[in-house]
Simulated assay, not measured.
Amino acid sequence: MTKKNPKSKYARLEFSERITIKNMIDAGKSNAEIARKLNRPRATITHELQRNARVMTWRGKKKILRHTYEPVQAARRAEYYQSKSHRSQPKITPKKREKIDYYLKKKHWSPEQIAHGVPRIGVCTRTIYNWILNRNLSATLNDLPLKGKRRRHLRAKPVNPEHKRMMIETRSIHNRPEVINNRSTFGHWEIDGVMSPQDSQSFVITFVERKTRFM
């Protein structure tokens, strides 16, 4: 009898599998046990939790807070990133190039103003910046109102001092009463937030009741 090979780690998880992951986490099962149940490589389960559960860094070590994993949010994130990966970049046409150059050089509009203020322009702020930097337009950074200074570089988040880290740890979710962990009573909610792409500046907050899973 040949041993059945686990499903490829590149195969997308089904929603029913994400439900199983959550239920087995609540039952105290390990990642290896979950992988065997789903006939998946263990790395698939680990990567799924790294992407969709909160990860805490304490004294240089990362710990996945498995109890924060929610299958509904995980499925939505997967759908979003899949659609984003298949979304082709808008092509620059002579007409679009002429229109953007006009607003940049003659009207002295910023890429933000063009992306959000020109009807049917069909490009986002970041794309316009990329076209300027890649010299797909005749306009340059010097034609921008702020000479391109609005494009901020990412900055590393400062590390919390020791006393603040200790304060956060004392309020950890691990210290909540057992009555919340066993999902026996109604009224305990978990909150999570999902940010949309940068240019839309939208934010979705979800509330999930632990006992009924009402969201």
Rank of each mutant, 00 (worst) to 15 (best):
M1P: 14
T2V: 14
T2Q: 14
K4T: 15
K7Y: 11
K7P: 04
L13C: 03
L13G: 02
L13Q: 07
F15K: 06
R18M: 09
T20L: 09
T20E: 12
I21P: 04
K22V: 14
N23S: 06
M24I: 01
A27Q: 15
K29C: 05
S30C: 08
S30M: 00
S30Y: 09
N31G: 09
A35S: 01
R36I: 12
N39W: 01
N39L: 05
P41F: 06
R42M: 10
R42T: 12
I45K: 05
T46M: 08
H47D: 13
L49D: 00
L49W: 02
L49F: 05
Q50A: 11
N52Y: 02
A53G: 04
R54C: 13
V55D: 05
M56N: 12
R59L: 11
G60H: 03
K62E: 14
K62W: 02
K63T: 13
T68F: 06
T68R: 00
E70V: 10
Q73R: 09
Q73D: 12
Q73T: 14
A74E: 06
A78T: 07
Y80G: 07
S83Y: 02
K84M: 10
H86P: 03
Q89C: 07
I92P: 04
I92W: 07
P94H: 05
P94Q: 04
K95Y: 12
K95I: 09
K95T: 13
K96I: 15
R97K: 15
R97T: 11
E98S: 11
E98H: 08
K99L: 15
I100D: 04
I100L: 10
D101Q: 04
D101A: 06
K105L: 12
K105W: 06
H108Q: 13
W109T: 03
P111Y: 05
P111T: 01
A115D: 03
A115E: 06
R120Y: 13
I121P: 03
G122L: 01
V123K: 06
V123H: 01
T125M: 01
T127N: 01
N130I: 09
W131G: 06
L133R: 13
N134M: 08
R135V: 09
L137Q: 06
L137K: 03
S138L: 12
S138N: 14
A139Y: 06
A139D: 04
L141K: 02
L141S: 02
L144H: 00
P145C: 07
L146V: 09
K147C: 09
G148P: 02
G148C: 06
G148S: 01
G148Q: 05
R150E: 14
R150H: 14
L154K: 11
L154Y: 15
R155F: 08
K157Q: 12
K157C: 15
V159N: 09
P161M: 07
E162D: 10
K164N: 08
R165G: 07
R165F: 00
M166L: 15
M167P: 04
I168S: 11
I173Q: 10
H174Q: 15
H174I: 11
N175R: 13
R176Q: 04
E178W: 02
E178Y: 11
R183F: 08
S184Q: 07
G187M: 02
W189D: 00
I191E: 01
D192F: 03
M195V: 12
S196E: 14
S196K: 07
S200I: 15
S202V: 12
V208G: 02
K211G: 01
K211E: 11
K211T: 10
K211M: 14
R213H: 09
M215S: 13
